[in-house]
Amino acid sequence: MLERQRRKNTTAVTFVLPGGDPPGPVSVVGTFNGWQPGAHVLQARSDGTRAVTVALPAKATHAFRYLAAGDYWFNDAGADGQDGPNSRLNT
């Protein structure tokens, strides 16, 4: 799930997943962080989910995926669409 908060020149995007599915650490990787695993690791929230917020340039398109333990890559069903094998996000 994606949560967005528009600001003047950026959009704060919060990437949200259930607390334990998939198990272990999960990162969001994409064009906005050079596809670098571990750059944006989702952290536990009090409501039982886990999330990370990334400030992205407004009016742009980004490709991203999640990377879980065991080299498990997966997409976000709530994304704005698909960009090849990746999820697509429009800010």
Rank of each mutant, 00 (worst) to 15 (best):
N9G: 12
N9M: 13
T10F: 10
T10R: 11
T10W: 08
T11H: 12
T11L: 15
A12K: 09
V13H: 04
T14L: 07
T14C: 01
T14K: 08
F15W: 04
V16Q: 06
L17H: 02
P18S: 12
G19K: 03
G19N: 03
G19S: 05
G20T: 03
D21M: 01
D21E: 02
D21H: 00
P22A: 12
P22M: 11
P22S: 02
P22W: 02
P22C: 12
P23M: 04
P23W: 05
G24K: 00
P25W: 09
P25M: 07
V26I: 11
V26D: 07
V26K: 02
V26A: 09
S27H: 08
V28G: 08
V28W: 09
V28D: 03
V29W: 00
V29N: 02
V29T: 04
V29Y: 02
G30E: 06
G30M: 03
T31I: 09
F32P: 05
N33D: 15
N33S: 02
Q36T: 13
Q36G: 05
P37Q: 07
P37H: 03
G38M: 02
G38V: 10
G38F: 05
A39F: 10
A39T: 02
H40M: 01
L42F: 06
Q43C: 04
Q43M: 14
A44N: 05
R45H: 10
S46V: 03
S46Y: 02
D47F: 01
D47A: 01
G48T: 07
G48M: 10
T49K: 11
T49Q: 01
T49Y: 06
A51Y: 06
A51P: 07
V52L: 11
T53G: 01
T53W: 00
V54C: 00
V54Q: 01
A55H: 12
A55E: 13
A55K: 10
A55F: 10
A55P: 09
L56N: 01
L56I: 12
L56E: 09
L56T: 10
A58E: 10
A58V: 06
A60C: 13
A60L: 14
T61F: 11
T61A: 14
T61R: 15
T61G: 15
T61E: 15
T61P: 13
A63R: 15
A63K: 14
F64W: 13
R65A: 08
R65S: 10
R65E: 05
R65Y: 00
R65I: 05
R65C: 08
Y66S: 00
Y66F: 15
A68V: 06
A68L: 02
A69Q: 13
G70E: 02
G70R: 00
G70Y: 01
Y72E: 06
F74G: 05
N75K: 15
A77W: 14
A77D: 11
G78S: 15
D80V: 03
D80L: 08
G81Y: 01
D83T: 05
P85A: 12
